[in-house]
Design a protein around this nucleic acid. Structure first.
Lengths: 210, 210
DNA sequence: CTGTCGAGACGTACAGCGTACGTACGGGAG
DNA sequence: CTCCCGTACGTACGCTGTACGTCTCGACAG
């Protein structure tokens, strides 16, 4: 039995979240999965909150930025957003944990640095770069939370809405569009909105310089 | 003492959430606030989850759609997004509860119906309208969660990042942009992204019809 | 008026939670 | 050898949601 340590505890937490969901995470359960007493965990992790921070940090640090400096900035922005989405997608049930924890560590700030650097390099002003950055973050997080089922509100997922379930008098559009509302190619729709946003800010930049 | 009933319980829950946060919500606490035994609540609400659904529904039903049919569709979309944001803002600490519960009731579907109707009326195709709708939902929810502090990730709020806190060698952009990252005019930034998105889809429509 | 009945308020109880605290053990330092 | 400290662990406290049984009270039948 290898010694108990923080990375092993964090890994067990991620594993548990992916197997049974974030609600199943408890210190007792993690300890049981590790074959260890509950309180032994506290020798390596100050509390549950810090453990979840560790989960977020661990997942975040998996992001691989294959950032080609020669590529146009629009492509680099697209790739960064996709890289983030892909990591979240490889740990779907941990996504809510990742995005709901503000990390001050390097793992949390590196993606921010990359994005801001790309936007500044593209020619956006200081405040402008930050605003655009925030718009992208909002879109990416909003999309991810819908994809993983945390915020299904207003975006019924597969099987939730069928044409017969809604009163076509009260909700004619929902009834008519039920086939489209009940299916979703997440990746294609993510790219759809991403392209929309990139085109919008590219137009902003073009309108100024030329 | 008025009789215990579901609306009174839901109102107490909303009040408690706004005063002490969603984590403070427990059946015992709500019962105590109402001066009532814990189990009495279960005569009017089947369980805690249904109670939170009631919270979401109650807040959602406060949305007032002042939807001028004569206004251009771009303006109507903007107004609907703002109306949603404003309601969330008037119950900030309940926002996460509202957006994380999928409601099949009329209160939950009315905003969807309005938005889809507006987009279809603007001339977008069936699948296109749904996709655009989802993009807006993602942006709005992502923005709201950041504004209310649920997902501060990658978007440090006031006071979180100061210039001296970051290693300017590792994170030069974050250091340089710290003044802008640490402040945020939420309403202006929300409108900034909203205008960006509206302009993007308007361009899409214009490019097709003429 | 009396007997009955149903609905709602309530107390108790159970399993689970995070974690503060005290204890026991095992290996390195002197 | 002894000492000491970090680690593992058990126990305990106050909290959670809620299943279950009981009690009270108003309405209605006879």
């Amino acid at each position: 039995m290898p010694p108990l340590n923080r990375p092993r505890i964090v890994a067990a937490a991620i594993d548990l979240i992916e197997r049974e969901g974030a609600d199943a995470v408890s210190m007792r359960r993690i300890a049981a999965d590790l074959g260890v007493g509950v309180m032994s965990l506290y020798n390596h992790v100050p509390n549950k909150s810090a453990l979840l921070d560790g989960v977020s940090e661990s997942i975040l640090s998996e992001i691989e930025f294959t950032d080609d400096p020669a590529a146009p900035w629009t492509e680099r922005v697209r790739m960064q957003a996709r890289a983030f989405r892909q990591i979240a997608h490889s740990h779907p049930r941990s996504t809510m944990v990742v995005v709901s924890r503000q990390l001050k560590s390097a793992a949390g700030m590196l993606p921010v640095e990359r994005a801001l650097s790309t936007l500044r390099g593209a020619g956006f002003g200081e405040q402008e770069a930050v605003q655009i950055f925030r718009v992208f973050i909002a879109y990416v997080i909003g999309s991810l939370l819908r994809e993983v089922g945390v915020t299904p509100t207003f975006a019924p997922v597969h099987g939730t809405i069928r044409a017969g379930d809604v009163d076509p008098e009260l909700f004619p559009e929902i009834g008519a569009l039920a086939p489209h509302l009940s299916t979703c190619d997440h990746e294609a729709e993510f790219d759809f909105g991403l392209d929309l946003l990139i085109a919008a800010i590219a137009g902003r930049l073009a309108g100024r310089t030329g």
